[in-house]
Design a protein around this nucleic acid. Sequence first.
DNA 1: CTGCCCATGTAAATGGTTACATGATTGA
DNA 2: TCAATCATGTAACCATTTACATGGGCAG
Lengths: 182, 182
Amino acid sequence: MSLPHFLLGLFEISPMSGYDIVKAFDYSMFFYWHATHTQIYKTLKKLEHEQKIDGQLLEQDGNPSKTIFSITKTGKESLIKWLREESKNNSLKNRFIIKLALSAELKASEIIRHLEQYKMQLKNELCYLQSDEKAGFLQFARSAKEKILWESTVENGILYCTHEIEWANATQIKLSELLEKE
Amino acid sequence: MSLPHFLLGLFEISPMSGYDIVKAFDYSMFFYWHATHTQIYKTLKKLEHEQKIDGQLLEQDGNPSKTIFSITKTGKESLIKWLREESKNNSLKNRFIIKLALSAELKASEIIRHLEQYKMQLKNELCYLQSDEKAGFLQFARSAKEKILWESTVENGILYCTHEIEWANATQIKLSELLEKE
DNA sequence: CTGCCCATGTAAATGGTTACATGATTGA
DNA sequence: TCAATCATGTAACCATTTACATGGGCAG
């Protein structure tokens, strides 16, 4: 139940179109969230209907027209209210880890291969998090406070990926030691 | 789309009742997954209908009867097939972090308080992951390989919580330095 | 006799993915 | 001329949460 608030948060930073948000998600701009265009456009309709955002049609030449949404006073109030609430239900769902826990039926070599694939996914994410492109966004922070928050969230993703890769390496080693014993 | 497979994985370890699984989730036995009883019982019906599990009524005195499910041959085949597949869509959703990224409108002191609450949640989880109760489960591993996998998943949770707490501390310090400057 | 634990369910709502659809424009 | 990008949508499905419900047993 957070996508509407997440979008309000984006509009509070800057007015933008639904498509801008779709693209931001597609380029995995937000390490800890994902949404598809279906969900985004539906949520935008809902937020507009609740008068939390306000759409302005922008005609373009070359490209189709698009609606630029801005946050309204009501929307901002709703956003602040949500921001102030304690964040509960922070439980994570990690498909890879739970599959791994149940994988004892597979050959050790096969599990090692899965860990390798997992590491590759993490390295890709890490690569983007550490890119100049990502770092470039930080300059758009509107205050020292915002800059700290944005840097911290990027740092969180980097630390997560790094530690997860290290853990995967350690697990691979344990499994290969097992292979040698057999 | 993994709960059915997750449950098959549990039944492959040992036959058990729906209620056993409900309780396991309630006591957050599985750090990286959660499900409610509604979802569990519905999934059990589905798995039974697909003949992937097989229920046996167990009469008890004192307590109501319960159905103990075991995995069938078909179920085990389906489980193995899933285990062999590469695990994609490992993207995480972290409500706390995304809220934090949007929190620049809040006072630094308020954000520091949120980080404190987040740390408390993590410390609770960590406490359980490091408990004797949790360690006790490891002895039920049916092979050296399974033991490595279970230990690794617990270790993964411990590392995650530990690093996340460290990161939260560092972020709190940055924010309090900002407070001093004002 | 009140309230919690056992054990299992239904109904309704929300959240999220996948597939299908459109129609203009631009670059290879 | 073929495919990709821009921009937005619907329909159907699957996943998940919240609320409501039952009925016996047991402890305080």
